[in-house]
């Protein structure tokens, strides 16, 4: 298993190479760069000269392939460069933003799994009966609504109408309980819910479908013939099988959840990777764009790897060696 993981991780390198090359080319295809805005700064006397000097300092006057390989060489030395818009190392900016996004994504994932799996299993157990029909209807409804619309609806009610949950940031500034665990949690609720809701509906449907397939299997009849009661049959014998395709899908979706976080972070002014990368793009901050792209790409690929590992762990019939 360990050697398999190492081999898979090494296998990620060519993919990452291709992704960064593409992003590098696209980013340079955008008109202008991070220093062009200085033209409009009234305090700068000779903007053209300053821009030329800054471009030279940052190597922007070199041919593209040299710029790319310079960046790559630095990455291999663990150096993602200096952000041109924030004036701090890219790694430091990412180091502050990434934990926030991870917290958001992981919380959303936990909500998704804890809610959708039991509901999906119970729906399948009484397929086409009242509970199944009503919850399935709600699930389809939720699934067809984009996450940012949920975000706005949640904000409207919980923050503005009823004023029970905060709408922005990760902590409440300037109060005694600022930064406490409870403070963190109440800030997390709305963005995590908005991120979780559409996937929650999707995973409920997926669990229901998988469970319906497994519930007719011969070994379920055996379990009944042993006198086991329904909860044990459903949540041990059936779910243990139905969850296998589910965890695989889940690993693949980690990247998607990360992507979904980008828009929500804007709405909730959540200082995570989404905000960071949008600001980087808007200000043409090349090192920051490349750095955050690298983080997103690694997340997606690690998600795929996690999917494979979860599959191996959850299905004893699969062996990796």
């Amino acid at each position: 298993m360990a050697s398999y993981i190492v081999r898979r991780l090494l296998g990620l390198i060519p993919t990452l190479f291709v992704i960064t090359v593409i992003v590098f080319l696209l980013m340079h295809a955008m008109p202008g760069n991070a220093f062009m805005a200085l033209v409009y700064n009234p305090k700068v006397k000779d903007p053209a000269a300053l821009i030329a000097r800054l471009e030279a300092q940052n190597g922007l006057n070199q041919p593209l392939y040299i710029q790319y390989f310079d960046w790559l060489r630095n990455v291999f030395q663990g150096n993602l460069g200096m952000s041109q818009s924030l004036n701090e190392p890219v790694s430091q900016a990412i180091g502050q933003a990434l934990p926030n996004t991870l917290l958001l994504a992981v919380t959303a994932e936990v909500i998704i799994l804890l809610v959708s799996i039991p509901i999906g299993v119970l729906q399948a157990n009484r397929a086409n009966k009242g509970f199944d029909i009503t919850t399935s209807f709600i699930a389809v409804l939720f699934y067809s609504i984009p996450g940012f619309v949920f975000a706005l609806i949640l904000l409207l009610f919980f923050s503005f109408k009823w004023n029970i949950l905060p709408s922005t940031g990760t902590v409440t500034p300037g109060v005694s309980y600022s930064g406490s665990l409870g403070d963190h949690i109440i800030h997390l609720v709305l963005p995590a819910m908005a991120l979780a809701l559409p996937s929650l509906a999707y995973y409920t449907r997926l669990t229901r479908g998988n469970t319906l397939q497994v519930i007719v299997a011969d070994f379920v009849r055996t379990a009944k013939a042993k006198g086991l009661r329904t909860p044990r049959i459903l949540f041990r014998h059936v779910l243990r099988n139905a969850i296998i395709p589910l965890v695989t899908q889940f690993g693949f979706d980690i990247g998607g959840l990360f992507g979904g976080a980008i828009i929500l972070e804007e709405i909730f002014t959540w200082p995570g990777m989404g905000e960071l990368s949008i600001n980087a793009t808007l200000s043409h901050d090349y090192p920051l764009i490349l750095g955050s792209t690298l983080v997103f790409a690694v997340t997606v690929l690690i998600g795929n790897l996690i999917a494979d590992i979860l599959l191996a762990v959850s299905d004893p019939r699969i062996r990796y060696d």
Binding site: A217, D218, F219, R221, T222, A223, A225, R236, H237, R240, N241, I244, S314, D315, P316, R317
Partner: peptide, 14 residues
């Protein structure tokens, strides 16, 4: 009770 097909009658993942 025991059944005809011992492969499918046992739960593959337990």
């Amino acid at each position: 009770m025991i059944f005809q097909e011992p492969m499918t009658a046992l739960n593959p993942v337990l």
